[in-house]
Write a protein that binds this DNA or RNA. Structure first.
Lengths: 223, 223
DNA sequence: GACTGATCCGAACGATCGTACTATTTTTGG
DNA sequence: CCAAAAATAGTACGATCGTTCGGATCAGTC
């Protein structure tokens, strides 16, 4: 928290309290929702005055946006970037999924990934906050689809795989994981998610791995 | 509004306004959330006084619970019951899924299935409302798993299929559908959901599309 | 037509919301 | 160390929240 003592710039006093506010807001928002965030509650938790805290952001919406911006940056840093270190192809897809699972259960996010929660909270409430969430999730889906496309090029996945559909299905597994884990308190949630993901991978892989000698495409196969 | 003039009982005046309140609350809650429901807003929309409306329920929590109770009953009526008319086995599983898709897009639910939204809204907020949502979703998952189990018995699905996992995966597809449809405004959301569901069915079916002639009960068959 | 219960309204309560203004402190560069 | 600047606190505002309470208005029974 206070590693570097000799930093004349880069972290003015205001900057670091501002970051502390955002970090706490993030942890809070995962539990009570992005809209449920309250300046008063934040100030109380951080032993500040409402006005002193408020002065860091132009409005509540500003606070929400900056908080989500921080969450997005953290997610890229702790999920996407490390996954890029994994070998191209299926291993990287796996790394993305596993990284996301870990991110979802990160201790700094006691209520889980804020974007997942916001997906359902803001889906019918237009505004810049919603727009930001949509953009972030679109980027995430693109990342997944891109990794799948690479896996196709590497020969790990079927050549005719619909990569957007693959990303979509991954998202479904993730959402089901949150559902089972957070709401239903199912202790097997993680196991369930992994099972579903393995099945998805199996279906996405090149047909050679499955010892099916007959035609792999049943009638009516389209797109 | 006054169709039946000769009804001495069964629908007293209070009962029908109470139902009107709940119906409107349901439509509202799907858009602004269960917690976002507001007595004032409801009263304004229905041209009533706050206190007059409030008198129908002991508390806001009471209103929320009764509203969800109505939603659950409607869902059973419009999804589960009709599906029971479908032939046992895979057709019934299909009917459940298709019925749920239609329910999710029902015009009386402008924001989609309230339980889906509540899943993420209340996952970290203990209380009777959360408990009710959990119970309802547990029942839904049991219905799905039960239908799958019947499909196994009918020989439509693999004998070693994990029916709870199947229900879990169905839920994931549903959640991804809501995600893609409501938040991302993806016009292909429905197509995506159907594609994912067909893949799930394909993986659940007996290993060869041709009916299995061998013993229908492999070792390890229980419950 | 008076009585009775159900139904609804109006006004008010304390609390809390987001935000605006003005002081007062604290940090910072010279 | 000092003045300028940044950061925080204090106070107050109009709105709205859930809830209470006493009184109107209505329906149905004798």
């Amino acid at each position: 928290m206070k590693a570097a003592a000799r930093q004349p710039r880069a972290t003015s006093k205001g900057e670091q309290t501002r970051e502390a506010i955002l970090a706490h807001a993030l942890g809070l928002a995962t539990r009570i929702g992005v809209e449920g965030l309250t300046i008063g509650r934040l100030a109380e938790d951080l032993h500040m005055s409402k006005s002193g805290l408020f002065a860091h952001f132009r409005s509540k919406e500003g606070l929400q946006l900056e908080m989500l911006r921080m969450a997005g940056a953290r997610m890229v840093e702790s999920v996407v970037k490390p996954a890029l270190a994994a070998p191209r192809g299926e291993p990287r897809v796996r790394a993305l999924f596993e990284g996301w699972l870990a991110w979802e259960q990160s201790p700094s996010l006691p209520g889980g990934c804020p974007f997942m929660a916001a997906s359902f909270e803001l889906d019918d409430r237009p505004g810049p906050v919603r727009d930001f969430v949509v953009q972030n999730l679109k980027d995430w889906l693109d990342t997944l689809a891109g990794a799948a496309r690479i896996a196709v090029r590497e020969g790990h996945f079927r050549a005719d795989l619909d990569c957007e559909q693959f990303a979509h299905d991954c998202q479904g597994i993730g959402l089901a994981f949150v559902h089972a884990s957070r709401l239903m308190r199912d202790p097997r949630a993680r196991e369930r998610a992994r099972t579903a993901f393995e099945a998805l991978l199996r279906a996405a892989r090149a047909p050679s791995t499955t010892p099916v000698p007959t035609a792999p495409a049943p009638p009516g196969r389209r797109r």
